[in-house]
């Protein structure tokens, strides 16, 4: 009985697949998750808008979920850690808030002042 007659591959037809080259690139760090999934920049932009909307309306947990999702997709913004800091503060988690504030502050210092400031010893 041939493989064809066994119809073993039939169930896989039509299901979306991940391209092998892209998939392997994830582990060699040559590809981002956004590339592998094929997410459009417009989609990411509207997700970011949604995160901001949640932020403005005080839905902190939802905001955190989306911002962390965007970071997992390799789509960050400079002030995301500061935004996350506020979210965690409002959610009553001062430890996380302090870490996010510190990282946001240092990132901002590096971006504003360049290489000359913020170097650690």
């Amino acid at each position: 009985m041939s493989r064809h007659r066994l119809e073993l591959e039939g169930s896989r037809r039509g299901a979306p697949t991940i391209k092998r080259g892209l998939y392997d690139g994830l582990f060699s760090k040559e590809r981002s998750l956004t590339e592998v999934l094929g997410a459009e920049p417009a989609t990411l932009a509207s997700l970011r808008e949604l995160a901001h909307a949640h932020y403005h309306s005080g839905r902190w947990a939802q905001c955190v979920a989306i911002v962390e999702g965007l970071h997992a997709l390799d789509a960050p913004e400079l002030w995301d850690p500061i935004m996350l800091s506020r979210c965690h503060q409002e959610l009553g988690d001062p430890e996380r808030a302090a870490i996010c504030a510190r990282i946001g502050e240092e990132l901002l210092a590096l971006a504003v002042n360049g290489r000359s400031e913020g170097a650690s010893s």
Partner: peptide, 22 residues
């Protein structure tokens, strides 16, 4: 994390266009 993000706002326009099948 991305799944949690998608689940956080299932009806939002950005999420609707997100490649969930992939």
């Amino acid at each position: 994390r991305v799944v949690q993000m998608v689940e956080a706002a299932p009806d939002a326009p950005g999420v609707a266009a997100f490649p969930k099948a992939e």
